[in-house]
Amino acid sequence: MNTNVTKNIDILLSNGWDRIAYNVLRGLAKNGLKVVFGADNYLGMGYYSKYASSKFIHHNYKKSEKLFISDILNAINKFKPKVYIPTGEEIFSVSRNLEELKRTGVKIPISDIHTLESLNNKVYSFKLAQSTNIPTPETIIPNDLNEIIEFIKENDLPVIIKRGWSRSAQGVFKVENLNISQIQSLIKKNHLEFGKFIVQKFVNGETYGISVLMNNGETRAVFTHKRLREKIITGGPSTLRISTRNSKLENFAINLLSSVKFHGVAMIEFKFNEKTGDAWFIECNPRFWGSVGLAINAGVNFPYLLYKLAVDGDVEPVTDYKEGLVVEWWLGDKLARLKYLSSSIRNNNYIPSSFKINYFDDYYDDDPIPFFAWIFLLLRRKFIKLR
């Protein structure tokens, strides 16, 4: 940890290696808050931001939850923040140890571990969506290979296989041929366990994200974006998106989160057929999401609202924001285009668009160093195994 401790810290962030945490940092600091920024190595994107009042290094939560939580406890006791917000998937480690962390007196505005896991795990979340009358693609949780084969015969190809616990496009596979040996190989190669993954009928539509802030099941902020491009041709994180509205999907998202009295921030992904009006629930991320920078720049500052919710107990609802704002993940979009050029798959989404880009969510003129630290980190991770 740093030896220089800034006094009167307002908020502590963890897992700050990527652009999600960096945009959360900006959203907080630009409202005058003092933020201590934690990362699991010295090349975290926000670690070199001018907006971080202080910094510390913590263990990687994936390698040792015990050591990670110990580091967070030490940081809380050292910096004495009013609020602690996990910015990524470490939220599950934090929620499992919520009572111990809260005994320090810090406020942590997240849901309990059961709620987080029921929303994040695709084996459970699609059932939850169905129970609240939200449409989903035809779905099974197969117990053996025969059930997958029968499902394909009944619903036609392509189908999507999704690991229950997955992030972005990791653990998501598109099956376009009824080749039993290939399906067996896919399951074996990716260590998929029957009963712990789902198979869904492929649905056509544009991808929308509905971001929501909830106060114990009550809506406090809603923001909608539409994906214009994705990093991986067959799916994955978005690299170009636009702020928009979709009341049908917004109501679905609110109903889903209200049904479990969700507390905190989440983004729910839908497929929406703009010609027919049909919609399908795809997944829920009960944490900060990759395009949070778009919401902040459009006028819905989820990080700051979450902080105020923690400190004051509630916030005034926020639903107004600038529509038609386009934000690009610069580096991700360039990598996506390179993959497109070398791929046999052709998709019009990868043809340069006519959209005017208003912001980048990984590069800002007023704070450029984090962007270059991010590039160096990615290159280093390619060639050197980090601790």
Rank of each mutant, 00 (worst) to 15 (best):
L341C: 14
I9M: 14
S93A: 15
T224S: 15
S291V: 05
I108E: 06
N216V: 11
L240G: 05
N121V: 10
M1W: 08
N285E: 08
P86N: 09
T234D: 05
R227L: 10
N347S: 13
K66V: 09
V5L: 08
S125E: 11
F376K: 11
W17K: 09
S291D: 04
L294M: 07
E323L: 15
P142W: 07
A29M: 00
R387A: 13
E89Q: 03
F252G: 13
Q170C: 09
G27F: 05
T276K: 05
K55M: 10
L119T: 03
F79Q: 04
S131H: 07
G277N: 04
D320P: 11
F262Q: 12
A39L: 10
L178S: 05
R19L: 12
G290W: 06
V94I: 10
L257H: 11
E150H: 04
N146W: 07
P303N: 01
I180D: 00
R96K: 14
I20Q: 06
S53L: 02
E138W: 00
N255D: 08
N190F: 02
Y321M: 04
L341S: 06
R227M: 05
A310R: 12
V318H: 04
I141Y: 06
E328M: 14
I180A: 01
Y61K: 03
I72F: 07
I254S: 02
I141F: 14
P109L: 05
F37M: 12
N60T: 02
S259M: 13
V36D: 00
N246G: 06
V311Q: 09
L145P: 04
F288A: 10
S185A: 06
N97L: 12
S354P: 02
S181F: 04
G195K: 10
V327M: 15
L73W: 01
V300D: 05
A21D: 12
Y208D: 01
I108C: 00
Y48W: 14
L128K: 13
S185N: 07
G88D: 01
F223V: 13
W289I: 08
E193I: 13
N41F: 01
N97V: 08
V318I: 02
K66C: 05
S258C: 04
I57A: 00
G195A: 09
E154L: 08
N133M: 03
E269D: 14
G38F: 03
F56W: 02
F56I: 07
T276A: 09
Y363V: 12
D314P: 08
I9L: 15
V326D: 00
R387W: 10
I351P: 04
